[in-house]
Amino acid sequence: MNDTEPTLQPATDADRIAAGPAADALPPPAEWSPIAVRLLQGVVYNDDNLTLWEVLLRNVSPLSEFFGRLGLYLIVDETSAMAYLRQPEDDEVPPDYQSVPRLFRRTKLGYDATLLAVLLRDVLRQYEEEDLQNERCVIEQTDLLALWRNFFAEVDDVKLNRQLGASLRKLEDLKFVRQFEKSPPSWEVRRIIKARLPLDELERLRQSLVAEAEKVAAKETTAANPGNAPKE
């Protein structure tokens, strides 16, 4: 048997990649690194973490440059005390701009979730116009159900409340709302919904939803009273 020691071979590039970068090869994180990660995760509010919010305000320029290289706009709304990232539409960039893959996928909401977003946006608008005492726009789920009921022919409140709850959870995933109290259930309408649903878009969607609700109600009436159906 050959007792000679094995010959050590120098590590190849493939070996280094497989092993991963050494910790000391990473540059030290910048002061704004934690807030950059939070922004990539979604909207940031000052009342979520005031310390991070102050870091953001001190570093708007480097953060804007960093995200700009990823093809993203950093939007800092100090009036609404929130910040978020936005990917420009194709018509917002010059023709010679090098395209960057979309980081944020588009989420298409169904009828129920769209209806709820419109109702909540309207609730927030009324709050901003009339409520000068409370810092947060909070609405109880029972009050939301009263608004929700107007758009459905269904009279079973248990079923309607279940549908409403499912839509609230979808919008919670998008950070449009967050649960404020569990009993009785109430919800805080988050300010990001203003950016995602401007007033002109709100009015357009409201008219579309009202027309759809009237169409559904007419079909329900016809089904219940077939003798009243219009004759051709």
Rank of each mutant, 00 (worst) to 15 (best):
Y111C: 02
Y111A: 11
Q87W: 08
S99C: 04
L85W: 04
Q87R: 09
V118F: 01
L124I: 10
D90W: 05
Q98W: 03
A113C: 04
F66E: 05
L103V: 15
D131T: 11
Q126C: 01
D96H: 15
Q126T: 14
T79W: 01
V123F: 09
L132C: 04
P88E: 06
P94A: 01
S80H: 15
G71V: 01
E135D: 14
Y127E: 04
S80D: 15
E129W: 04
L120N: 05
P62I: 06
Q87M: 08
G71N: 07
F104I: 10
L103W: 14
Q87N: 01
Q133W: 07
E128K: 04
L63S: 03
Y84A: 01
Y111N: 06
L132V: 00
P95F: 09
A113H: 02
R86E: 12
Y127L: 01
N134Y: 00
L124A: 12
Q133I: 02
S80W: 10
F67V: 06
S99P: 00
Q126L: 07
D91F: 13
R106Y: 05
L132P: 00
L120R: 05
V118I: 05
L120I: 04
Q126K: 09
F104T: 07
Q98L: 11
Y73K: 13
Y73E: 11
L120E: 06
E78I: 04
L103G: 06
S99N: 08
F66A: 14
Y127A: 11
P94R: 02
V100T: 13
E129K: 13
A117L: 09
V123S: 09
E128T: 00
R102M: 11
L109R: 13
F67T: 07
L132G: 10
P88R: 10
R121N: 08
Q133V: 07
A81L: 13
Q98C: 08
V123T: 10
R102H: 15
E135I: 08
E92L: 11
